[in-house]
């Protein structure tokens, strides 16, 4: 039978168990992840949060920021800033959103730094090659090379120096009729920067915004380790990696000849066009850049790809970027400042 003392002892033990239980149930930091198709690509947002509700609200805020950008920049929507600028080419200035204004200024800067290897006025050539449409599911047409005279004709309209920016009222004009801006080579890095800022404003301390090949990580994982970011193997399957980087508070962008391409007579024609020749640039299979800002990595990875191995490396060194190159013969070059961020093979799993 029980007596008062043993009951009291038991009560003390039970209270202790309760106390232990209450200590163990800390609000657990978990990883939440959501996908959405925006900007003509797949956007993945990953956040670390103690609450699913907080995570969801923050992720939705960040998606709204990207959605807003998409509306300003999409060349498919006639009401977008980019469509209006292109339709008014050679005619008039177009007042644009702060996002478009900032992005166009950043694009011009990337063009200046790379001496036109990246050029936001590449639109007419992109439209001529139409690689994105050729590989669409409903296309069912054989890929065809554009005629040389057509390429030469379009090259006349490709020159970033013909973008006129009116800083006073944030308006843009393209000097010649027939010009067209295409911000596809820089917009995703900018979107990653903006979405990370939105997540931080929602109180999120760590996470990843990934816009296809362009991503930005911030903070640490729940176990305090760095985020692990894989670099895709250019000639492997979709999930084959050539390297894994251990990152915190950095942006990564990769441009590869395997993203959008077709092959004729054994020659690969991909979507990274050289604004000077009008043809796909060769020299690399992929270029990966790492830096604090997505707008820099995204704008310049295309430029480095187009510049080729020698001049590309010069630009990387000049800008103090971290880089992972896969040359067209499959060989690899890694800048010294990136080597320390590469996870050794045996630790990947």
């Amino acid at each position: 039978m029980l007596n008062i003392a043993s009951i009291k002892k038991l009560q003390i033990i039970l209270i202790l168990i309760l106390l232990i239980n209450s200590c163990s149930r800390q609000p657990e930091q978990k990883i939440y992840k959501k996908f959405r198709i925006l900007m003509d690509t797949i956007i993945t947002i990953t956040v670390v949060s103690p609450s699913e509700k907080e995570a969801e609200t923050a992720i939705n805020n960040a998606f709204s920021v990207i959605e807003r950008l998409d509306k300003s920049l999409s060349s498919f929507s006639p009401d977008s800033d980019v469509s209006k600028i292109n339709h008014s080419a050679g005619i008039d200035f177009v007042k644009v959103s702060t996002d478009t204004y900032q992005l166009i200024n950043a694009a011009i800067k990337s063009a200046q730094i790379s001496d036109g290897a990246f050029d936001p006025t590449i639109g007419p050539l992109v439209n001529l090659w139409d690689i994105a449409d050729i590989i669409k599911p409903d296309a069912h047409i054989s890929p065809k090379l554009p005629a040389l005279n057509k390429i030469k004709e379009k090259l006349m309209f490709v020159n970033y120096k013909d973008i006129i920016v009116d800083d006073h009222d944030m308006s843009i004009k393209l000097r010649k009729k027939g010009m067209a801006i295409d911000l596809g080579g820089i917009a995703k890095g900018y979107a990653a920067d903006k979405a990370v800022a939105a997540l931080k404003a929602s109180g999120i301390k760590s996470g990843i915004v990934s816009c296809a090949g362009d991503l930005k990580v911030f903070g640490n994982k729940p176990d305090n380790s760095n985020w692990l970011v894989g670099i895709r193997a250019p000639r492997g399957k979709l999930d084959d990696l050539i390297a894994v980087l251990s990152l915190k508070d950095l942006a990564v962008s990769t441009s590869g000849d395997y993203e959008r391409f077709f092959i004729i007579n054994g020659i690969r024609y991909h979507h990274i066009l050289d604004p000077k020749t009008g043809y796909p640039a060769n020299g690399f299979q992929s270029v990966t850049l790492v830096n604090e800002q997505g707008i820099i990595t995204d704008g310049l990875d295309t430029a480095v790809f187009v510049l080729g191995p020698k001049k590309g490396l010069e630009l990387v060194n000049k800008m103090g970027l971290m880089a992972y190159f896969v040359y067209s013969d499959g060989s690899i070059y890694i800048t010294d400042n990136l080597k320390k961020l590469i996870v050794p093979n045996d630790k990947k799993n």
Binding site: G213, K221, L228, G230, I231, G256, K348
Partner: peptide, 8 residues
């Protein structure tokens, strides 16, 4: 996940 994101 083992790998948190992929660039490429």
């Amino acid at each position: 996940a083992v790998i948190d994101a992929i660039s490429g």
